[in-house]
C-alpha cells in the first residue's frame, strides 16, 4: 500500500526551494554539522536519514532557525529559501517560521481545544479576516490532515485528549493551517504505533502536492516509502544525497551502503 506511485516519484523536475551552502553548526565546542551542501526541491518529500546523533535533526532545525532558541548553538554558512538567505540580519525568524512550518517528534498539541490548536497559527499571523474565514481555514487544515471526520463533532474538546496518532495529525493540521511553503518534520512517527504511522505517512504523501516536505527519520523503510529524495548524514557530514531509489539500491558511498545494509547505526 505504501510503495505508491514509485514510478511517478522518479521525479518530474521541480524548482529548488531551499539551498544550503557550506553550513556548519557548532554546539559550544562540538562541531555538530560539517560543511553541508544540499538543494531541496519544491513539491517533493526529502528524507534525512542516518544513525542517531548524526546531525540530521540539527540540520533540519537550522532550516527554520529553531536553533536560535539554543544559546550555545552557532551557525555558519548560508541557507537560502527561494534565493533569500534566511540567516540574513534583516530576516525575522518569526516571519520565516510562518513560511517554514515544523512538526515535532513528540505530538505537542497545546492545552487548548482542537479548534484553538489549529486556529493558533492563522490567528497570530493574521491569516483570516473574520470568524468565517478562520472556520474555513480550520476545516480545510483538518481535512488536509485527514482528521476532520474524526473530530468535527468535538472541536471544543482539548487537543490533549486525542490519541497519539490523532494528536500528531492535529499538529500537522496546525502546521498546515499557517499556510507554510515548507514543512519540516522531525521524526514525526517515532512516538506512534504502526497504524497511526501508516495514516501519517499517507498524509505526508498527500502534502507533497502543495508543499516542500523535509522529513527526518531513523527508519529506512519509512524513508523509502514516503520520500523521493534522500540525504544520508553520518557524524555531521552529508555523505550522500540523491534519488531515494538510487540511495537504497545503488549507494555510491561505502558508509551509506554500510548503513542501509545495517552494519552501522
Amino acid at each position: 500500500m505504501y510503495d505508491i506511485n514509485r514510478a511517478e516519484s522518479a521525479v518530474t523536475q521541480q524548482d529548488i526551494k531551499i539551498s544550503a551552502r557550506n553550513v556548519q553548526v557548532y554546539y559550544g565546542d562540538t562541531h555538530a554539522i560539517k560543511d553541508v551542501n544540499v538543494e531541496i526541491l519544491d513539491k517533493t518529500v526529502t528524507a534525512f536519514i542516518g544513525p542517531s546523533g548524526c546531525g540530521k535533526s540539527t540540520f533540519l532545525r537550522c532550516i527554520n532557525r529553531m536553533n536560535d532558541t539554543i544559546d550555545i548553538a552557532r551557525i555558519e554558512g548560508q541557507i537560502r529559501l527561494d534565493g533569500e538567505d534566511i540567516y540574513d540580519r534583516r530576516v525575522d525568524p518569526v516571519q520565516l517560521r510562518a513560511k517554514v512550518g515544523m512538526v515535532f517528534q513528540k505530538p505537542n498539541p497545546f492545552p487548548k481545544s482542537i479548534y484553538d490548536n489549529v486556529a493558533y497559527g492563522p490567528r497570530i499571523h493574521g491569516l483570516a479576516r473574520n470568524k468565517t474565514e478562520l472556520d474555513e481555514i480550520v476545516e480545510k487544515s483538518l481535512r488536509g490532515s485527514a482528521l476532520w471526520n474524526e473530530v468535527k463533532d468535538r472541536l471544543d474538546e482539548p487537543g490533549t485528549g486525542l490519541s497519539g496518532g490523532q494528536q500528531q495529525r492535529l499538529c500537522i493540521a496546525r502546521a498546515v493551517a499557517t499556510a507554510p511553503e515548507v514543512l519540516l518534520m522531525d521524526e514525526p512517527c517515532s512516538a506512534l504505533d504502526p497504524i497511526a504511522t501508516g495514516q501519517v505517512e499517507e498524509l505526508i504523501d498527500q502534502l507533497r502536492s502543495e508543499y516542500s516536505v523535509v522529513i527526518v527519520t531513523h527508519s529506512m523503510q519509512q524513508a523509502a516509502r514516503v520520500s523521493q529524495k534522500t540525504a544520508f548524514f553520518h557524524l555531521g557530514n552529508l555523505v550522500e544525497y540523491g534519488e531515494t531509489d538510487d540511495i537504497f539500491t545503488k549507494p555510491q558511498d561505502s558508509r551509506t551502503e554500510a548503513y542501509i545494509s545495517g552494519r552501522i547505526g
Binding site: E84, R90, D92, G126, L127, A128, A179
Partner: peptide, 25 residues
Amino acid sequence: TDLPMPQSGAAPVPKSSLMVADTRT
C-alpha cells in the same frame, strides 16, 4: 488565550520577501 480577530490582511501574498518585515510582524 484568545487573540483578537485580525483587522486586516487576507491570505498572505505568496512569495513575499523574508527580508522585509510586514506591518503585522
